[in-house]
Nucleic acid binder design. Structure first.
Lengths: 174, 174
DNA sequence: GTCTATATGTTGATAGAC
DNA sequence: GTCTATCAACATATAGAC
């Protein structure tokens, strides 16, 4: 009652682990229940379906992405890239999952939302009708930062953000 | 005889298509045989197993990666990044597949080879004991270029290379 | 080279006892 | 809340006819 957690939360924790290790599509409910020491039907008591379990893990990113896209406002490039980095850092575990198999994004409307997010971010960074070269620079900047979030996840947040944003800014303005 | 191609090559072509569309793990032999208008057992006449088919498609990248790693030599950063970009561009179809589900890399020694490749490239770019910031800059540079290869695959090679290498170089030296 | 038919295992999901 | 037992649908793979 006071604690909505217990088995349900532990299921999500173990699912996150396995999804990060081997991808979402590649993880079966049996693997999850085995690692937890329970059986498959017990999972179905807590989640209506496999998709519901996956969705419950992805939901925080979906919500955050919507909020971010809605409140995106013009500003200098450094500030935009910093905000972008912070969003990705917050959800770096889920981003590892999704980066590792985007097949999961189909069926959810995640593809559209991510595309909308990057479209608006790029527009604010580059202006209305950017050249092909400018769009490529933006890809290096944003794509490079997202790699940092995954590759240097064990370093302190401040340190990674400072260096990643500086490099992204340089790429953008080259 | 003169033509080692025919069904075997067509199988590989269709498999590449489907692997790129929906990922490797997520594609069944039935889907491949259906799209080709043959039956599943016919596939087994040409390939010993599902894994043999997958491996035959990944092999060119594996070989190229080994050659590249072995012949890596010191040079200026621009030249190293250009060579790196060209390797990724050559294999961009396979890279899309692998980026989309790295689960495929397990079992093959692809993970080790890619890691070795990036390690040696980073060492040549940054020197023997780079700072954390420098390694983050290199991640933005290399990771950003690999995103370009996937995201701007429909633009002309020269155009993408010029802009991507320029941005990567700026990120590296920021 | 390609087929039909089948063996064998795994998946997501459900029924019903405790 | 968790179990045993089971389902239908799908996977990879093989045997053997043509």
């Amino acid at each position: 009652m006071a604690r909505p957690s217990d088995t349900k939360t532990r299921i999500q924790a173990v699912a996150r682990e396995l999804f990060m290790e081997q991808g979402v599509q590649n993880t079966s409910l049996k693997q999850i229940s085995d690692r937890l020491g329970i059986t498959k039907p017990a999972l179905y008591y807590h989640f209506e379906s496999r998709e519901a379990l996956v969705r419950s893990i992805l939901q925080p990113l979906l919500d955050d992405l919507d909020t971010f896209t809605a409140t995106l406002a013009p500003g200098d490039a450094r500030r935009l890239l910093e905000d972008c980095f912070e969003l990705m850092w917050r959800h770096r575990e889920v981003l590892v999952m999704l980066l590792h198999d985007p097949g999961t994004m189909l069926g959810l409307d995640l593809v559209e939302r991510v595309w909308e997010w990057r479209k608006r971010l790029t527009a604010l960074l580059l202006g209305p009708s950017p050249s092909a070269a400018a769009r490529i620079h933006a890809t290096v900047a944003i794509g490079g930062m997202s790699d940092c979030v995954v590759e240097h996840a064990s370093l302190p947040f401040e340190e990674v953000r400072a260096a990643a944003v500086a490099a992204a800014l340089a790429a953008l303005q080259s």
